[in-house]
Design a protein around this nucleic acid. Structure first.
Length: 487
RNA sequence: CGGGGCGUAGCGCAGCUUGGUAGCGCACACGCUUGGGGUGCGUGUGGUCGGCGGUUCAAAUCCGCCCGCCCCGACCA
């Protein structure tokens, strides 16, 4: 008996974080391994999260003026080679198609690892005048990067994402666009996905190949490792120059436009799972939960069943009419306790229990997924169920964010002693985030990496703190930066 | 590519030492039972034992070669 229940549980998160993560993903049926190494199958419950996330983000992106388009999966190999840093950055991980139609191709095609090159090739044909600018497109697609080690959602050979690409007539406008998207991502992750973040600039070593500046949103997972959740790049004129994108300005002068690109990927699913999940399984923010509320009817005797079923159906119908994504679990042959555990595993934010006692008193028992055990249980009058449930879903969304934000704050430490810094970050697994003064020198960054395996995750913008001393070399440092071991 | 581990039913494993033609738990199907935190019982379905070759009357088991997967390091949204 004890053995059997053990089989049903996931690996405790505190015992083995990576094992817990895999168990949750598989048991909650979000994804499955595929026959192709490094590629995964998004199962309906996992894809539903992506769809909810995508739909909301798509609305927000369109509100900036960007429009969706679609560019080809295949890119001539020579395109990738045009931008020196870009090719150096991506060459090791591109998949190359050498044959088609039974013949060897004249020029191999790479499967896009990102679409800067092919999109800019097209931009060069579309942009002639300052009146064509700004040009802002976004595409939702798959990309392929042949990674050496893969992990479900966090690093897969093929992943889904959105990539936005814009071209502007002035440097200032492109820089502003880069930061505007960074802010869009930040707000989206915090408000919609309930993911707490730090944001900032990337160090030169962590910059996107081909970008002048990369900005990032970073979160910290419960195992103390950082996860890059999205990036926004200021590309300067680098791609414009190599792809020959030029326009005539108001003075009839030929100019290169200034560009940006930015993206978030299905890695965000990994962030949601790791940030919110617990030993019972998944915990989904109501915004992305395919099922926000599950109604579980409970009865003992056949005589009670009809009244309970009827009340449960009424509750279900009322919630659905109120626009809530609700499921009525009428399965016979499995016990209520089994259903409780199963829906908790799947991360459903709120459970409504209706039994004979509730029918008699005109109430239902509500069980919040964000608060474990009795702490999450309360009663609500069936007569005002939808209103009550709607409000509670909002509280759950907020509750998940607050729990995560509190855990993240508690795992960020400031150091002025390099020894203490290394001791914290260099231990087994993740040591949380360190917020330290750094002079900006690449040698100091390398030393940190060699001593601790931690890397610079973000340098916050608009720092107002007084200058200090670099954590490594002790020389004057104008800024502080976040360091952590990263996924 | 270096270090470590593992391939037996969908999943987790036993059997291998000492060869005799495959078993357990979970899952799955059906029935009864149960039902406010993973109910119990019964009956069933399901396996080229990773692949190839060798030894042998006989190989999951012994020998050789190959393949694949997982974990840890060097690259990464």
């Amino acid at each position: 008996m004890a053995e059997k229940q053990e089989d049903r549980k996931v690996t405790p998160r505190s015992e083995d974080f990576a094992g817990w993560y895999n168990d949750v993903v598989l048991r909650a049926e979000l994804a499955d391994y595929s026959p192709v190494r490094g590629c995964i199958v998004f199962r309906p419950d996992g894809f539903a999260i992506w769809e909810a996330l995508r739909d909301e983000l798509d609305r927000r992106i369109k509100a900036t003026g960007a429009r969706n388009a679609y560019f080809p999966l295949f890119i001539p190999q020579s395109f990738l080679a045009r931008e020196a840093e870009h090719v150096a950055g991506f060459a090791p991980e591109v998949a190359v198609v050498t044959h088609g139609g039974g013949k060897e191709l004249e020029e191999p095609l790479v499967v896009r690892p990102t679409s800067e090159t092919i999109i800019n090739h097209m931009f060069a044909q579309w942009i002639k005048s300052h009146r064509d600018l700004p040009l802002m497109v976004n595409q939702w697609c798959n990309v392929v990067r042949w990674e050496m080690r893969t992990r479900i959602f966090l690093r897969t050979a093929e992943f889904l994402w959105q990539e936005g690409h814009t071209a502007h007539s002035t440097r200032a406008e492109a820089q502003a666009e880069t930061l505007r998207i960074l802010e869009l991502y930040r707000d989206f992750c915090e408000q919609f996905l309930a993911l707490p973040l730090v944001t900032g600039r990337k160090s030169a070593a962590e910059r996107f190949p081909g970008a002048d500046e990369t900005y990032t949103i970073e979160s910290l997972m419960p195992d103390g490792r950082a996860l890059q959740c999205g990036t926004s790049h200021f590309l300067g004129q680098n791609f414009a120059r190599v792809f020959g994108i030029r326009f005539l300005d108001e003075q009839n002068q030929l100019q290169y436009p200034w560009q940006t690109s930015w993206g978030v990927s299905t890695r965000l699913l990994g962030a949601i799972i790791m940030t919110h999940g617990d030993d019972q399984g998944l915990r989904l923010p109501p915004t992305v939960a395919a099922t926000q509320v599950v109604v579980v009817p409970i009865w003992r005797k056949a005589a009670e069943a009809e009244a309970v079923r009827a009340a449960a159906r009424r509750a279900h119908d009322e919630l659905r009419a109120a626009g809530i994504r609700v499921h009525l679990d009428e399965r016979d042959g499995v016990t209520p306790g089994f259903k409780f555990n199963e829906w908790e595993m799947r991360g459903v934010p709120l459970r409504v229990e209706i039994g004979p006692r509730d029918v008699a008193s005109g109430e239902a028992v509500l069980a919040r997924r964000d608060l474990a055990g009795q702490a999450g249980k309360s009663k609500a009058a069936l007569s005002a169920l939808a209103e009550h449930v709607g409000r509670m879903l909002g509280e759950i969304q907020h509750g998940l964010y607050e729990q995560a934000a509190q855990a993240m704050r508690a795992a960020i430490h400031e150091f002025d002693d390099y020894g203490a810094f290394c001791q914290r970050l260099g231990g087994e697994g993740g040591g949380g985030m360190a917020y330290v003064y750094w002079c900006g020198d690449a040698d100091c960054e390398t030393k940190i990496r060699e001593d601790t395996r931690a890397t610079c995750r973000a340098i916050p913008l608009g720092q107002k703190t007084a200058p200090g001393k670099c954590i490594v070399c002790g020389r004057p440092a104008r800024e502080q930066a976040y360091f952590a071991t990263a996924y």
